[in-house]
Amino acid sequence: MKALALFQKDWKSEVRTRYAINALAMFILVTISVILFSIGSEKITDYLTGGLLWVVIFFSAMSGLSRAFVSEEERGTTLTLQLIAAPSTVFSGKLLFNVLLVFLMNFVITFLYEILFESFTIENYSLFALAFLFGNIGIAVSSTMIAAIISKASSKGTLYPVLSFPILLPLILTLLELTKFSMDGKTIEESFVELAILVSYDVIMLTAGYLLFDFIWKD
């Protein structure tokens, strides 16, 4: 309940300040437009389109998801949060906020992809939906953790993608594979190993997040 209250505070604050949503929306628009312009009338392979989808998602996440903690640090309200909530509440609240942002962002990106790229054809929608669900959770958990770490650093903008890349790489690689499988029409049973990796990644990151957040949160 406390985490939900923190999420509500963040959401209301976001609606008023548009701190993350504007950055995310602009980034999605710009990157998809650039890809469209650079492709022109060329016909690109299905796999390449699927790969580019996760490139757009990775960099969009990098442009907006750090805001959960960076905005608190920049406004100086981190201390206020430390005085009203336990570290686990803060992590849960911020995670909920990032989960919502990731799902919103990825729905928009996938929708735009679906209508703008002819070669982006999914044969097995249920497999793609599962990859999308667990992938989004993985991105949200990792980016929340990394956002908390970099919010204390001086060069936040550069550090976020640099630190995120090695942590998100196994997730993105698995998602690329699963997107390829769903384009090929493979069944969920045939993709079990990749899905298991995805779920394991989420569980490990979530556990690590709750265990380590206490140390990150305090100076």
């Binding site: 406390k2 505070k9 604050s13 300040t17 406004r75 309200t77 206020t80 009203i84 609240g93």
Partner: peptide, 18 residues
């Protein structure tokens, strides 16, 4: 620093709930 984008009462309501 309290939240500038909220009113005084909104700040207090959010803090109580959190």
């Amino acid at each position: 620093v309290l939240y500038d984008e909220f009113t005084a009462e909104e700040n207090l309501i959010h803090f109580s709930k959190i």
